[in-house]
């Protein structure tokens, strides 16, 4: 049985994403893509009993509205916003049984930057180059490789789906604060900076530029720099790398970022913290705290075990 998700309103950027993203194609310049806040994307799929690699919607800043043609089980996680089913306010972080024709309305986010909407069942979308994730530059994945618009429809096969109540464990719901401390490792070119510059980068609170997007989080707080990139040729980069262009405003590469880059790679955000940057927006501030690689690996394991423990 098919329930059709109808997009009533999608606002600035709503796309289909999944979690593994697109792998094995970086040598062609094809980025990983996928949900930026992997933590909440996983929670959303868990809430509705979908496999972790199922497609779901990533809704930037909220302000979106949807309707389903059949009784459907959905999950909403991520940033904080008032959510309504019809006129009835509903809580995020638990699965919701929505009746045919009822409107799901997600208002503008008051905290965080992205909301994830999962729908129980099998989405009738085609993987492209191994993933459902939308990558607009190459018109890949999602719905015709683009962002969702009013009037778009996505069919979901809901055969066998049953509603049994699920709530996100408290332990897995993050606290959103205006200022986030992000754990980072030294990048390959970290040692190019003077001790003073290193100290300053770890002390500064960086603002978020309005030009930030799924490729990169552009940070504001100019560094006066001694390093120049004159002889620097393009080198491999991965999501989480912090680049320092000559202008002195760092860029954190996110999931739609390129596979090679021409700026010094001063830091690498720990994978355990990278998802948090998916919830950062203009008006927020971040600062970096330096850890070593062994700590980063331990953090990764710690969070993986924590999720495995609660999400059974």
């Amino acid at each position: 049985m098919i329930s059709t998700l109808e997009v009533i309103k999608a606002d600035i950027l709503t796309t289909v994403q999944d979690i593994p993203g697109r792998n094995g194609l970086r040598k062609y310049g094809i980025p990983t893509s996928g949900a930026l806040d992997t933590h909440h994307a996983e929670l959303a799929n868990w809430l509705v009993g979908n496999p972790m690699d199922s497609p779901l919607l990533e809704i930037t800043l909220g302000n979106a509205e949807f309707r389903f043609t059949k009784e459907t089980v959905i999950g909403v996680t991520g940033g904080v916003a008032p959510i309504y089913v019809g006129d009835r306010p509903v809580q995020p972080n638990r699965n919701i049984n929505i009746k045919p024709g009822e409107f799901l309305r997600i208002e503008r986010l008051t905290k965080g930057a992205r909301i994830y909407l999962s729908v129980a069942g099998d989405w009738k979308l085609r993987k492209e180059l191994g993933s459902y994730s939308t990558y607009r530059t190459a018109e890949l994945g999602g719905l015709n490789g683009r962002e969702l618009k009013t009037g778009d429809r996505i069919e979901v096969d809901i055969s066998g789906v049953e509603f049994t109540e699920r709530t996100t464990p408290e332990e897995l719901i993050p606290h959103y604060s205006h200022h986030q401390k992000i754990r980072v490792m030294a990048g390959p070119e970290w040692k190019w900076l003077t001790d003073k510059e290193q100290e300053k980068i770890l002390e500064l609170r960086f603002g978020i530029s309005s030009t930030s997007n799924r490729m990169g989080l552009r940070l504001k707080n100019k560094m006066a720099l001694s390093i120049q990139d004159s002889e620097f040729s393009s080198v491999p980069v991965v999501p989480g790398i912090v680049q320092l262009p000559p202008g002195g405003n760092p860029i954190v590469l996110m999931h739609d970022a390129q596979s090679v880059g021409g700026y010094p790679r001063i830091l690498k955000v720990a994978d355990a913290d990278l998802w948090r940057l998916g919830q950062v927006w203009q008006g927020n501030e971040i600062s970096f705290s330096l850890i070593d690689r062994r700590d980063a690996l331990e953090l990764f394991d710690y969070y993986r075990e924590l999720r495995a423990f609660y999400l059974t």
Partner: peptide, 16 residues
Amino acid sequence: DVVPTYKCIALLFKEP
């Protein structure tokens, strides 16, 4: 992933 550049090669793995 195996990603070549002019002077080096990156190997990307699924797991840490």
